[in-house]
Amino acid sequence: MTVELSCGLPPGPAFGDLAVLAEKLGYARVWIFDSAPLWEDPFVHLALAAERTSRIGLGTAVLIPSERSEMAMASAIAAIARLSGGRFRACFGTGATARRTMGRRPLTLRALEEYVAAVRGLLAGETVTIEDQPARMLHAEGLAAPRPIDAEIWLSAFGPRAIELAARIADGIVGQSVHPALPMATMRAGTVLEPGEDRGAQRVGEAVGPWQVVAFHEAYAIGGAAAVDAMPGGQEWREALERLAPEGERHLLAYEGHVTHVTERDLPLVGYDHGFPTLIGEADEIRDGLEQLGERGVREVIYTPSGPDVARELRTFSAAARR
C-alpha cells in the first residue's frame, strides 16, 4: 500500500513559507498544531497558507475543544474550508498537552464527543443545543459558504475507547493503531542522515531532540516525580526544574520548548530512546520505514520536522521518500 507523506508544523511566523515549500516538495498535506500556551493561533496561519497555496491539503493536529466555543470553531472551520477550496481537514483531540501546560486534565471522551457532534451539526446547517439553548449558524448569504459545509472531521485516537468513538463520529483518525474501518494517519519525527553521518552527531540531536524529550515532559505531567525519576536522566531533569518554581507552577516549565526547541535543561536527555516514534537514517532507510508503515495499513505519515533548519528537513525527507 502506498503511504501519503504529509508534514506537521507549529503555527508561527515561519508556517506560511514552510507550507509553500511543502507544496513545492510534493507533500500531500500540511497539518498545523494547536496549543494556545505554546504557539500562535492556527486558524490565522491556515488562512494565510490557504491563500498562498493551491494544491496541498491543510489539516489540524489537533484542535482542542476547550480553546474555542462550538460556534467559534464551526465558523473558523467554515472560513478555512472556503479559503482553501475544500482542502481542509479538521482533527480534534482531548487536549492532553494544551491543557496540561495550564495545569488541567485532558477533556473526557464524552465531552469530546458532544463537542464534535455539535460542531458537525452546525457545519451541516442543523440546529443544535449548546448550553441548553438552540444554536445554528446564521451567516447571511455572502458572509460564509452556504451550509452544509464540506470539511472532513477526524479524531486523535490512541486508546481503544477513543478508537471506538471515532468509528461513530469521525471520518478518520490520527494515532498509532490502524483503525479497522477508518483511514489512519500517524506522526513520525526524524531526520535524513547525510552519507556516513553518525546518529549521535550534533546536527542529528538538534534535529530530533525536541521530539526525543517529549516522553519526559509527559511522564512528569502525568505520573509526577516517581514516573520521570524512573527514566534515564529523569531525576536530574526533575530536580533542575523543581528548583526553578514552586509546586503549583511547575507545569509552566515542564513543556518549555515542547516539540520545537531543546532547552538547556532538556539537553542531557537528547539521544535517549524514550521519545516520540522516529525515522532516522539515510535515504534508503527512510524509504524502507515509510514502506513498512504502508504495509501495516497506515494511510498517511505526518512527518514532524524540528530543530534549527526545518526547511532542510522537509527537503531531504521528501527526496528520500521519492527515491
Rank of each mutant, 00 (worst) to 15 (best):
residue 45 H to T: 01
residue 136 R to Y: 07
residue 209 G to M: 08
residue 255 Y to L: 00
residue 120 R to Q: 12
residue 257 G to Q: 09
residue 133 Q to N: 07
residue 16 G to Y: 04
residue 173 I to D: 00
residue 207 A to I: 14
residue 294 G to N: 11
residue 7 C to T: 15
residue 167 A to I: 02
residue 133 Q to A: 14
residue 252 L to W: 14
residue 36 A to D: 10
residue 101 T to I: 00
residue 139 H to E: 15
residue 102 M to Q: 06
residue 24 K to N: 11
residue 132 D to K: 13
residue 243 R to V: 00
residue 226 A to G: 04
residue 152 E to A: 14
residue 189 A to H: 15
residue 31 W to F: 06
residue 296 R to D: 05
residue 276 F to R: 08
residue 190 G to I: 05
residue 12 G to P: 06
residue 209 G to N: 13
residue 221 A to K: 00
residue 170 A to G: 08
residue 291 E to W: 03
residue 279 L to C: 04
residue 251 H to V: 00
residue 141 E to M: 02
residue 135 A to V: 13
residue 27 Y to N: 12
residue 147 R to V: 14
residue 267 L to D: 04
residue 118 A to I: 14
residue 256 E to W: 03
residue 119 V to A: 13
residue 258 H to Q: 01
residue 168 R to T: 14
residue 84 S to G: 01
residue 227 A to L: 10
residue 259 V to H: 02
residue 314 L to Y: 01
residue 172 G to A: 09
residue 115 Y to C: 12
residue 230 A to D: 04
residue 2 T to Y: 09
residue 114 E to K: 12
residue 148 P to F: 06
residue 273 D to R: 12
residue 66 S to T: 15
residue 250 R to T: 14
residue 212 Q to L: 13
residue 167 A to P: 08
residue 235 Q to T: 08
residue 322 R to K: 13
residue 115 Y to L: 15
residue 95 G to S: 06
residue 107 L to Q: 11
residue 26 G to D: 01
residue 105 R to C: 06
residue 182 L to T: 07
residue 147 R to D: 04
residue 31 W to A: 10
residue 56 I to M: 05
residue 82 R to F: 10
residue 170 A to K: 09
residue 26 G to L: 04
residue 247 E to M: 04
residue 93 G to T: 09
residue 315 R to N: 03
residue 294 G to Q: 06
residue 35 S to L: 01
residue 24 K to C: 05
residue 182 L to A: 01
residue 124 A to N: 05
residue 118 A to H: 09
residue 273 D to I: 03
residue 269 L to T: 02
residue 44 V to K: 07
residue 304 T to Q: 03
residue 178 V to Q: 04
residue 57 G to Y: 08
residue 121 G to Y: 08
residue 49 A to K: 02
residue 130 I to D: 11
residue 154 W to C: 03
residue 1 M to C: 06
residue 182 L to Q: 02
residue 190 G to H: 13
residue 186 T to K: 01
residue 201 A to C: 11
residue 247 E to V: 05
residue 109 L to C: 12
residue 179 H to T: 00
residue 267 L to Q: 03
residue 108 T to C: 06
residue 81 A to Y: 09
residue 157 A to I: 01
residue 165 L to P: 15
residue 18 L to A: 11
residue 298 V to Y: 13
residue 15 F to K: 00
residue 233 G to I: 04
residue 181 A to L: 06
residue 199 R to F: 10
residue 143 L to M: 15
residue 167 A to T: 01
residue 7 C to V: 09
residue 115 Y to M: 10
residue 126 E to R: 10
residue 235 Q to F: 03
residue 273 D to G: 04
residue 179 H to V: 07
residue 285 E to P: 06
residue 234 G to Q: 03
residue 155 L to E: 06
residue 273 D to F: 05
residue 24 K to D: 12
residue 140 A to M: 02
residue 232 P to D: 10
